[in-house]
Amino acid sequence: MKNLTHIIKNEWRTLLRGKWVAGYALIFLVLTDSLLRFGGGGAETLLSLSNVMLLFVPLVSMIYGILYIYQSREFVELLLIQPVNRSVLYWGLFLGISTPLMAAFMLGAALPLGWHGILMLDGASSFLVLALGGVLTLIFASLGFVLGLMFYEDRIKGFGFTIVIWLFLAILYDGLVLMLVFAFGQYPLERFVIAVSMLNPIDLARILVMLEFDISALMGYTGAVFSRFFGSATGSLTAAGMLGIWLAVPMWWGLRVFKRKDF
C-alpha cells in the first residue's frame, strides 16, 4: 500500500512538472466556457460538451496511455529491478497517470459549468457528462497501456493500432451497425441492436447521454423491447453495468500482460 501511494505520488509530481495535463484541462476549460458564452447554456452546452467528450477523450486518453509506456521505459525498467510487487507497480503507474488526466477533464469542464451556474441548474445532467468523461478516460488510458505493453518494441505499430481502434470505435462501428440494420431490416432487430451497441464503450456512453437528453424522442418509438429498455431504469443500469465491465477488462488485461512480460 505504501509503495502504491508512493508511486502514484511520484507520477503526479512528474506529470504536473510536465504541464501537459494542465494544458489538457485548459483546453476543456476554454472550450466549455466559450460554449456557454456563445451557445445557449443549459442542455445545449451540455450536449455540445458531450459530443466533444465522446470524440476526443478516448483518443487523447489512449494516446496518452501508450505514450507514457514508450516514454518512461527506462524508469519502468529501473523500478522493476527494485523489490516491488509487479501488480503494485502496475496499479501505481496506471492510476498515477490516468487519475490526473481524468481530473483534468472533469475540473476543466466543471469549473465553467460552475461559474455559469449550470451545475446548480442541471446538476444531474452535468454530473452525468462529467462522470462519463471520467470513465472513458480510465477505459481508454488502460487500453493505451495494453497496446503499449503489447507492442513494446514496435512503436509505429502501437500508435497505428491506437488510431485505428479509435477510428473504429468512435466512427466506423456505428456505420457498420447502420449497415446491418438496413441489411437485416426485415427481421426483429431491437435486441440485436441493443446488444451490439453494448459492445462499444463509446456507444455505451452515448446511449447514457441519449437517455438523459433524448428520452422524449425515444418514447416515440413503438417497439416493445426498446420501450422497455429505454422507458425504465433497465436501460441506464444495463449500460452503466456494461461500462463497468469495460472498465475492468482492459485494466485486468494490462495487469496480466505487465505481470508476464519479460522486459
Binding site: 470524440l55 466512427i171 456505428d174 447502420l178 441492436v193 451497441s197 452515448r206 441519449m210 433524448d214 418509438y221
Partner: peptide, 20 residues
C-alpha cells in the same frame, strides 16, 4: 428519414457517424 424507414436505427442517435 432513416428512422422513418428503419426505426431500430434510433439507437444511433447523436453518434459521430450519423452526424457526418
Amino acid at each position: 428519414i432513416i428512422i422513418d424507414r428503419q426505426p431500430e436505427s434510433l439507437i444511433l442517435m447523436r453518434s459521430m457517424f450519423i452526424r457526418l
